[in-house]
Amino acid sequence: MTSSSPPRYSRIGGTGSALPERRLTNAELTAELAQHGVETSDEWIVERTGIRARHFVAPGQNASDLAVLAARRAMEAASVQAADIDLIIVATSTPDMVFPSTACIVQHKLGIQGCPAFDVQAVCAGFIYGLTVADAMIRTGTARNALVIGAEVFSRILDFNDRTTCVLFGDGAGAVVLSASDTPGILATDLHADGQHVDILCTPGTVSGGEVIGSPLLRMDGQAVFKLAIGVLESAARAVLGKSGRSEADIDWLIPHQANIRIMQGTARKLKMSMDKVIVTVHEHGNTSAASIPLALDTAVRQGRIQRGETLLLEGVGGGFTWGAVLLDY
C-alpha cells in the first residue's frame, strides 16, 4: 500500500469502557421502587432478563463524561494520541443536549480539533452502525484512526412506575480505536432498519417552545421486541458470514447487544453456538443500549478471554426498528 492509496482494511487497535460509580443491585432497586408502590423482585428480574445489577450516573454526569473515559482507555490500549485521531463517532440515544452533538463535546474534552465528529442515532444498534460508518470512511481514505464510542445514560429516561422497563437498563460507555491496516480486520458488515415498528420501542417526547411535547420516558412492547429481535439477529449474522465466506464454525466469540439473556440464548441456538462462546455482561451492566457491545467487548478483552487473531461476531438490535452485525478478526 502506497502512501497515496487509501487503506484496504480497518482493524480494532484498542478498546476501553467506563461505568458510573453507583452500582445498583436488583435488591436495592426493588427496595427503591417499593417506596413508590411499584412491586418487583430479584427473582422476577433475573428469570426474565438475566440482570442482577446495573450502574446509574450521578447527578450532573453525562454521556460525554463516560464517553471520554472510555475513549481515553481505548486510545491508551491502541497506543495513539489525541493528535492521531481524525474521526469521532458517538452512538447514543441520550445525548448531553439537543445540539451540538455529544461527539463534538467529547472531541473538545479530549483536546482534539478539526476532525469530523458526529453522533449516530440507531439506539441499541448504534455501535454497529457507527463501526460500519467508520470502517467505510477508513477504507476510502477519509480517516486513518477513528474513535467509535457507544455512550448512554438511560437512567435519565426511565419510567420508574413501569417495572417492565425500568429494571432493564443501565448507564455506561464503551469505545474502540479503529485504524487503517494492510491486513483484514473488519470482514463484513450488515445494516438494516424497518420504520414500521417505531412504536414498539421509543421515547416519543420532543422539545417545542420550551416545553416537552409527548412523553420523555422510554416505553416498550417487550413481547414484540423479543419476537423481532431473534429473527433479525440471525439473518444479520448469516449475512455477514455469507459476505465474508465464513461459517458459524469460524466464530470464536459472539458479542451481542446485552438486552436480555433469553434473546442471547435464542440467537446462540440458531447459530449452533455454545453459550460458552457468548460474551455475557448483562447480569452486571443491564442493557446499556449503544454502549453494551463495546462495553462487553472491552470487558472480555481485559479479562483475557478474547485474544488477538480470534474472529468476533458483533450484533445488535434496537428501536427504529434498527439492527445489524459486524464480523471481524480481532
Rank of each mutant, 00 (worst) to 15 (best):
S3H: 12
G13K: 08
N26T: 06
E28K: 15
L29G: 06
E32F: 12
Q35T: 10
E39N: 15
I45Q: 01
V46R: 14
R48S: 04
V57M: 05
A58R: 15
A58Y: 03
P59H: 13
G60W: 04
Q61K: 15
N62R: 15
A63Y: 00
A63T: 08
D65T: 05
L66K: 06
A67H: 00
A70E: 06
A71Q: 05
A74S: 07
S79H: 14
Q81C: 08
Q81V: 05
A83C: 09
A83L: 11
I85G: 09
D86W: 08
A91R: 15
T92E: 00
T94G: 08
D96Q: 13
S101K: 13
A103W: 00
C104V: 08
I105R: 14
V106W: 02
Q107P: 01
K109G: 01
L110M: 05
I112W: 00
I112E: 03
G114T: 07
A117E: 09
D119L: 09
A122P: 05
G126W: 03
Y129H: 02
A136R: 12
I138A: 06
A143C: 08
N145C: 12
I149A: 03
G150V: 02
F154N: 14
C166E: 04
A175L: 09
V177M: 05
L178T: 01
Q196F: 10
V198D: 14
V212E: 03
S215C: 07
Q223A: 14
Q223D: 13
A224S: 13
L228S: 10
G231R: 13
A237G: 09
S247P: 02
E248N: 13
A249Y: 01
D250C: 09
D252E: 06
N260L: 10
R262T: 02
Q265G: 14
Q265N: 11
L271Q: 11
M273I: 08
M273V: 08
S274V: 06
V278I: 09
V282D: 00
H285A: 09
G286A: 03
S292E: 02
I293V: 14
I293C: 10
A296Y: 09
L297T: 02
Q303H: 11
G304W: 06
G304R: 04
G304E: 02
G304H: 05
T311L: 13
V317W: 00
V317D: 01
L328Q: 10
L328E: 04
